[in-house]
Design a protein around this nucleic acid. Structure first.
Length: 822
RNA sequence: GCGAGAGUGGUGAAAUUGGCAGACACGCUAGACUUAGGAUCUAGUGCCCAAGGCGUGAGGGUUCAAAUCCCUUCUCUCGCACCA
């Protein structure tokens, strides 16, 4: 240890030693309690950004802390390595996606290593690695055999300029991310996962995820979007056809004055009368041309056309004109709705635009409203009116009774609906896991034989950025034989959505090197669940829902033993600068590389953890980084200077002789307690660090007086230990300097001494009518009555209430006395 | 529009169960040391002129006591967004 804090030298030295000694390598140990801490793995774009640094710094504090507490800690890192940027690089610069990706992985790994994080690098997973995607394909086949994967024709995003299909992620504000052309829809045959089969379980299990932020659970709940209602079938006038609607408000049936069908629904053609066909066809065509943004941006203006056909209200027998309108979604419910303009604002807007009668059938009790001439739809609950036998019923009962009536009439039933759709998993892209399916004229779609996995990505492909998947250009890939009958057959040329790869990587970490199976069940039983998952809130729905779905499906296949993969979830806030998200276009990006070079990884980590609580936004401040750097220098100087004069080689038995001794012992134990609770318990790293700073301030004060060497040695020792999860390199350097040959990572976390935290006297706040008037010292441990007696006997207190009438005294032991006077 | 969260000094923030508002840090001011200081150490720093007041977006309420609980309201951020 030099006199000066040379972070560059220190960090390099310890990173090398840690790696050589493999101190972060873990194996299953049934005798030890495990702890699995996981940070969301990055896409290997080549460079770390501050969000990564924040994510991994948080994870490393947790990992190091839990390890020092005695847990067998699994703390892995890997790469979500398939995806579009690699392919775009190929199109733009002619670099092979594999080469580009693997180079980035190497660069990013080197960068990660400069942060000094306690990863077990032997468990690294790269999703583009054959030994990973082989098992991805195997899992796909298990899902397929279970009936969870199917192929169907559907609408996908299409860029007319690039003449290629785009993934949802490639559509930015309704436009192609590359050429900014407005994205349209195109029909294509696509692979889907039946995530909707799991909708109810995904919803219900949210209740048991107590360690998840409420916000994320609510977002998932809304995304699943379960609603209760009824399906009701209407007869048509002059036709044998019927149409079925879904409604959450069957109680408003008497207020139905029209019907609406989504333009895409095939039944539209059946219902349209010859004289209306031209208008309906034109409308359908217009809708098909509209982009998603156009269709949803005109929120208020409702358009539609009359089909010429009427439905019959089953209770009133009224004739209801059937319209086609694009405000009805084809793929939700039945694609048809009953129009109740009085009690649904969208229907109200439509009725106003097309002069359809509006009949109020619910009195919501809204003040001053004219039920015969509603100014807007009343969507609240209320009492039924104009509804024959049901008049007077409250909404809740009415829904039940009306639904029952439909059931008795044989024209309806209670049902539930979900907003969640099946997961479209195929991508017309090269750089992803090939879908291991083969199409045979005779046998249809057949999975590749397991012994033939992996279905390798071909390398003889062209990247033009146009047309279908580049895989189609391979001369070796497409043609194969049917695994079933041996006849010539063709391989699926689509690849998997990369969200599949990231839906089970946490299982692979448990057994990353296995070449016999995706993961060994016993190892999974030992390590799973992930005790603490940490990542950005932007994954609240997609990744976190897909991963939950995978875990459930794998559970049903008997491959894992739990239904939910992530016990606790911490969603970290964004790193911003000057109130804005760091971005190249604004020019406010601070690169981790630059900060680590200038101040070191310890400073970067400390600042990031100290500047804000982990789940909140973090405002980057160069001055704040300086502050963190200064603090580390302050600790370093303290240790260096005092080690020249005293023997500080470990924790020692000490007795406090002076008040200063007692104060330091108190500060030391209070800090250990605070860091233990804040860093290990509630993940309040900022306050944990502030208490370490307080301890250092105390020690600076203390060293100006008489030094109790045993006490000071203990304080220095524990200080270094509690600092180590936040700033591991400098801590290790100081630790070694004090004569230790072991590694801080393997040192047990210190325990605090309760006795040292009990003070002889406590400061009691004296309030008069709730206002602080004075403070005085009282013996510790007085109960209410004794405290009141003690305080009231004090002369200064008597003065405070001189001439006043004390009507009540409130005593809070150890804290305050409030005198209520008149 | 619906849903969630947040508003505290010049700044980032703390206050964990209703009990001293502003810990810790940045910044600023002064001093010490120094050839020098953008190093280091020490002291001060919510606001108002002192006594004494006033202060947690605004307004009201509950309570001996409110940043914290309740009602009303404003602003901002995020998510969803024609889901019948």
């Amino acid at each position: 240890m030099n006199e000066k804090y040379n972070f560059a030298e220190i960090e390099k030295k310890w990173q090398k030693k840690w790696e050589e000694e493999k101190i972060f390598k873990v194996t299953e140990d049934p005798n030890k309690k495990k702890y699995y801490v996981l940070e969301m793995f990055p896409y290997p774009s080549g460079k770390l950004h501050m969000g990564h640094v924040r994510n991994y710094s948080i994870g490393d504090v947790v990992a190091r802390f839990k390890h020092m507490e005695g847990f067998n800690v699994l703390h892995p890192m890997g790469y979500d390595a398939f995806g579009l940027p690699a392919e775009n690089a190929a199109i733009k610069h002619g670099v092979e996606p594999a080469k580009w990706t693997w180079e980035n992985i190497a660069e990013m790994t080197a960068q990660l290593k400069t942060m000094g994080i306690s990863y077990d690098w032997d468990r690294t997973v790269e999703t583009c690695n054959e030994n990973y995607y082989k098992w991805m394909q195997w899992i796909f086949i298990q899902f397929y055999n279970k009936g969870l994967a199917y192929k169907k024709e559907s609408q996908v995003n299409w860029c007319p300029s690039c003449a290629t299909v785009l993934a949802n992620e490639q559509v930015v504000d309704g436009c192609c991310e590359r050429c900014k052309t407005v994205v349209t829809k195109k029909k294509l045959s696509q692979w889907y996962f039946k995530i909707t089969d799991y909708a109810d379980r995904l919803l219900k299990n949210l209740d048991i995820l107590e360690g998840w932020p409420e916000k994320v659970k609510i977002m998932q709940k809304n995304w699943i979007g379960k609603s209760h209602g009824a399906e009701l079938t209407f007869d048509l006038k002059d036709s044998d056809e019927k149409i079925t609607v879904y409604t959450t408000r069957p109680d408003t049936i008497y207020g139905t004055t029209f019907m609406v069908i989504a333009p895409e629904a095939p039944i539209v053609d059946v219902l349209t009368t010859p004289e209306n066909r031209a208008a309906v066809d034109a409308y359908k065509e217009e809708t098909a041309k509209k982009t998603e943004i156009e269709r949803s941006s005109t929120t208020k203006e409702k358009t539609g056309v009359f089909t010429g056909t009427y439905a019959i209200n089953p209770l009133t027998k009224a004739e209801l004109p059937i319209y086609v309108a694009d405000y009805v979604l084809y793929d939700y419910g039945t694609g048809c709705v009953m129009g109740v303009p009085a009690h649904d604002q969208r229907d109200f807007d439509f009725a106003k635009a097309y002069n359809i009668p509006i009949i109020a059938v619910i009195d919501t009790g809204e003040e001053g409203i004219d039920l015969d001439n509603l100014p807007h739809a009343t969507e609240a609950q209320g009492v039924m009116i104009n509804s024959g036998e049901f008049n007077g019923l409250k909404t809740k009962d009415a829904i039940v009774k009306v639904t029952k009536k439909f059931e008795d009439m044989g024209i309806g039933k209670a049902t539930t609906n979900y907003k969640l759709r099946d997961w479209l998993i195929s991508r017309q892209r090269y750089w992803g896991t090939p879908i291991p399916m083969i199409y045979c004229e005779k046998c249809g779609w057949v999975p590749e034989k397991v012994e033939n996995l992996p279905v390798k990505l071909p390398t003889d492909v062209e990247f033009t950025g146009k047309g279908e998947s580049p895989i189609a250009s391979s001369k070796t890939f497409v043609d194969t034989v049917c695994p079933c009958c041996g006849a010539p057959a063709k391989r699926e040329i689509d690849t998997m959505d990369t969200f599949l790869d990231s839906s089970w990587y946490f299982l692979r970490y448990c057994d990353a090197q296995n070449d016999k199976e995706a993961f060994n069940l016993d190892k999974v039983k030992y390590w799973m669940n992930v005790d603490q998952y940490i990542g950005g809130v932007e994954h609240a729905i997609l990744h976190l829902m897909y991963a939950r779905f995978f875990q459930m499906a794998l559970y049903d296949l008997g491959l894992v033993n739990t239904e939910e993969p992530f016990q606790n979830l911490l969603t970290q806030g964004m790193v911003i600068k000057d109130g804005k998200k760091m971005s190249k276009s604004i020019g406010n990006v601070v690169s981790p590389e630059e900060i680590i070079n200038k101040y070191g990884a310890d400073t970067a980590r400390l600042f990031i953890l100290f500047a804000a609580p982990p789940d909140r936004e973090l405002d980057w401040s160069d001055a704040g980084v300086e502050g963190a750097y200064r603090f580390l220098g302050r600790v370093y100087r303290l240790v260096y200077e005092m080690s020249q004069k005293y023997k500080l080689d470990g924790v020692k038995a000490y007795t406090c002789k002076t008040q200063a001794d007692k104060d330091l012992a108190f500060a030391l134990n209070a800090t250990i307690k605070k860091v233990t609770e804040d860093a290990g318990g509630r993940f309040s790293f900022n306050t944990a660090i502030s208490s370490v700073m307080e301890l250092v301030n105390e020690m600076y004060k203390y060293k100006e007086g008489d030094i109790n060497e045993e006490l000071f040695a203990t304080a220095i020792t524990d200080l270094i230990i509690v600092l180590s999860p936040f700033a591991p390199h400098i801590s290790e350097e100081m630790w070694e300097h004090l004569g230790h040959t072991d590694r801080l990572f393997n040192i047990p976390w210190p325990k605090y001494d309760e006795a040292a935290l009990v003070k002889d006297t406590v400061e009691i706040v004296v309030q008069v009518n709730g206002k602080v008037k004075s403070k005085l010292n009282a013996p510790n441990g007085l109960d209410k009555a004794a405290l009141e007696k003690y305080v009231m006997a004090d002369e200064s207190v008597a003065k405070l209430t001189d001439g006043m009438n004390i009507v009540k005294v409130i005593a809070v032991p150890g804290k305050l006395i409030n005198l209520v006077v008149k």
